[in-house]
Nucleic acid binder design. Structure first.
Lengths: 191, 191
DNA sequence: AAATATACGGAACCATGGTTCCGTTTGTCA
DNA sequence: TGACAAACGGAACCATGGTTCCGTATATTT
């Protein structure tokens, strides 16, 4: 896969990834393989040569997405010196992105063990990035002492679903309010 | 539908509803019509005579479920005199039930406008029941003054998804913790 | 420029699961 | 108890969407 790859194959792989990202962003887990191929200007056969199955493709995309998130959180940690601002800012940044990305909203459900295997490194990367932000916030006493890294993931899972449910339109779900409540709830108030 | 109905039809309708509840509880939105019919000891044809479409059936079940919830919340309001205990107890009761019911966990996604139309009365009923509990808690000063009835629904949507994601098993999602955080967060601490 | 391995396109395939159809059965009523 | 409307069962139907297959095209190499 790495050493030599025909130039057209390389180009197509990129086209496919771009198309896939667009399709999944728009339609979430039920983006269609045919549609992705069409967007990429490529036949389904080609698509399948690059990714043996839909799950593989999903795994790849999750990997990229989480990797980007990790990068963003690291940057927040470095550029924002105020511990609470880094925490809140990082979270808001991520939720804003998620709000525009159906795939990410529903990631916990698209993420089969198969797919997660591919994305594993990015998961770890992201946990580490958040770990630093959280640690600093706790040390500064602006975040509940019992807050854990995994609380982020779990909360994001819930929030993403609220977004998705809201978008579906059978009933309104005010996820922004829940985010505010959450932030309010986990912020440590020093007395 | 109401006036006269052949006895076997009546009996079957009940069998179907029972079977459907079981199937949806177990498999959530992707319970299968064939399976439901089989469980009810009935042909698919019969199933479809009673409910013109799967969505109709879903609507009916949501209706029943929410109606039960409303009843439970009303009881809490009457039997539990402590305002906070009623609020927390009601919420925990509901989440416990949800934890054992895949259909309910994913309700916001199964609930098409079609289905919601049928369930509408129960939605209102439930909102009213919670309204009383919330009002009393706010008056007693044990709940954030800006808490709203709809916050319950939105939160439950998120929590249900965490449960579902957790059950899927690609990654752990500690929804109990989130429930505790939420309760902690919305509880008003009198100074 | 010919030879060959690689990659491509997209029609066809197949599994899944909701829905329909129609010949048969059963409850009800006179 | 016969007649008929109402209800039943379940095989067949159909749409959807992932996946495979194979004849064709193209990059690379000598």
């Amino acid at each position: 896969m790495a050493t030599t790859m025909r130039s057209d194959a390389l180009r197509n792989r990129q086209l496919i990834l771009d198309a896939a990202r667009a399709a999944f962003t728009e339609h979430g887990e039920d983006a269609q393989m045919d549609d992705i191929a069409r967007r990429a200007g490529v036949g389904v056969g080609t698509l399948y040569r690059h990714f043996r199955t839909k799950e593989m493709l999903v795994g790849e995309l999750i990997h990229v997405k989480l990797s980007d998130f990790a990068e963003a959180v690291r940057r927040k940690f470095e550029e924002e010196s105020d511990p609470w601002a880094a925490f809140e800012g990082g979270l808001r940044e991520q939720t804003d992105v998620m709000a525009r990305d159906a795939a990410h909203q529903r990631m916990p459900f698209a993420a089969t063990p198969e797919a997660m295997q591919r994305a594993e490194p990015a998961v770890r990367e992201l946990r580490e990035a958040w770990g630093k932000v959280i640690e600093r916030a706790k040390e500064a006493g602006v975040l509940r002492q019992d807050f854990e890294v995994d609380d982020i993931r779990t909360f994001m899972c819930g929030l993403g679903s609220m977004m998705a449910a809201d978008a579906q339109g059978a009933m309104p779900y005010d996820w922004r309010r829940q985010l505010d409540l959450f932030l309010d709830g986990v912020r440590a108030t020093r007395h």
